[in-house]
């Protein structure tokens, strides 16, 4: 994407799909709410019981449906409610990174982060940082309607 194709950063809000596990990162998003940690309204959270449930196909689908970025989140390593689901996520994520790169998407569009249920501020900061990063590179080239 060329630099002049970037939309006005102020008006355009990226759309981010965040996969969150029920026990940690979804709880982190809840804690962000309880602590009133303000964040851009860019993320749409999809709850799964464990980050290990996140199938790469879900991530690709999210991009195909127009997501400007996808976040894969779960419990900190060692804290998984299902013993080792996040270890499996970590392995899958390496594969995901490669495929997303092959698709021609920038690395700023895919993230892996471990967020515990108590880390509300971290969750809010994460959403803010990703939104800023994505605003810099503009809408996803896979966006059905193209660049705004």
């Amino acid at each position: 994407m060329s630099a002049d194709a970037k939309p006005d950063a102020g008006g355009w809000e990226p759309k981010i799909v965040a996969f969150c596990c029920n026990w940690c990162s979804y709880g982190g998003a809840d804690s962000a709410g309880m602590g009133r940690f303000q964040q851009p309204p860019s993320a749409r959270i999809i709850r799964v019981m464990c980050s290990g449930r996140i199938d790469p196909i879900h991530v690709f689908n999210a991009f195909l449906e127009g997501a400007d970025a996808v976040l894969v989140t779960g419990c900190h390593i060692g804290d998984c409610h299902y013993v080792n689901g996040n270890d499996k996520t970590k392995i899958k994520y390496k594969f995901l990174e490669h495929v997303v790169h092959e698709l021609g998407l920038e690395k700023e569009r895919l993230y892996l982060n471990w967020i515990s249920a108590s880390e509300g501020e971290k969750f809010a900061n994460f959403i803010r940082d990703v939104t800023e990063e994505v605003k810099k590179i503009g809408p996803s080239p896979l966006k059905p309607e193209g660049v705004a």
Partner: peptide, 12 residues
């Protein structure tokens, strides 16, 4: 896959 997939399809 259907349930999560529908939610993804509906996000935008």
């Amino acid at each position: 896959r259907k349930e999560i997939g529908e939610a993804i399809d509906a996000f935008e």
